[in-house]
Amino acid sequence: MNGVGSVRELEKETDKESPLHSMDGRVKLILLIFIIVYAVFSTQIAVMIFLEIYLLLLIYISTVSFKTTVTRVLLLLPFGGFIIAFQPFIHPGNVIWSGAFGIQVTDGGLMWAALLMSRLIVSLTSIVLLSSISPMQEVVESFRKLGMPREFAMILSLMIRFLFMFYDELHRISHAQKARCFDAFNKKLSYKWRMKQLGYTVAMMFLRAYEQGETVYLSMASRGFSEKSKLYHDRKKKIGSQEYAFIASTLGVVACLQILAMSFFYQWGLMGINIA
């Protein structure tokens, strides 16, 4: 899963300059979530292929590395891929292959697996793009502008600040443990003792980060910080022509795909059938 390395790398990606990087955070957030929602709504693989092409085009415009994007999507696929791998064997449909121990592969299962996989790839590409063009604090500010309650926005903003501090503490503690040759997966050590050490690691990490966080928060509060404070300066971004172009192109792509899905894609055979 995610670690300090990936958190820092993500923040570096968001420092790049491109038309998508400089856009209003709310527009990016809403449109990329909209693409995910449309992908989940759609039941045709052809629609997913065109959505993915559109996302790849956006990645090209954003100057985000294709290699990094593909690597991140591939690294995230196994989480859902495990469930998808079972679908050909468990989903109802016409049996197209029978093996030992009553194992059967159905056509319906294969199509369902393909649909789930294509949905997952589109969703992950969308997420990778969003996280590569929007710093975390910009997303928090976007949520705040979109009406997130102040209390939640404040905790979210502080959480992101503390996240980096937390990973520093984790890194420091694990470094100290490695220097003493501690390995939680070393089976020569007693399991109970390893669990105790891991428990203390979690407790120490939590306590140290809390005490640092408390100091930071109290110094912020003593300087007038509250849930009403404006935490992030968004370089006075306004919704302008770039944002309107992005909104129009995304809504246009989705509208065209929906029209094609209802009137044309069914001629494409397996790619265009509605998979239920």
Partner: peptide
């Protein structure tokens, strides 16, 4: 939250949130 979040609870909640985030990335045998 509006009733209970004071100067102690806010950093505790934020740190716990960050902590839960970090803990989920720590694999245990």
């Amino acid at each position: 939250a509006r009733k209970n979040l004071d100067e102690k609870a806010v950093p505790l909640m934020a740190v716990l949130a960050a902590g839960i985030f970090a803990i989920m990335s720590m694999n245990m045998p």
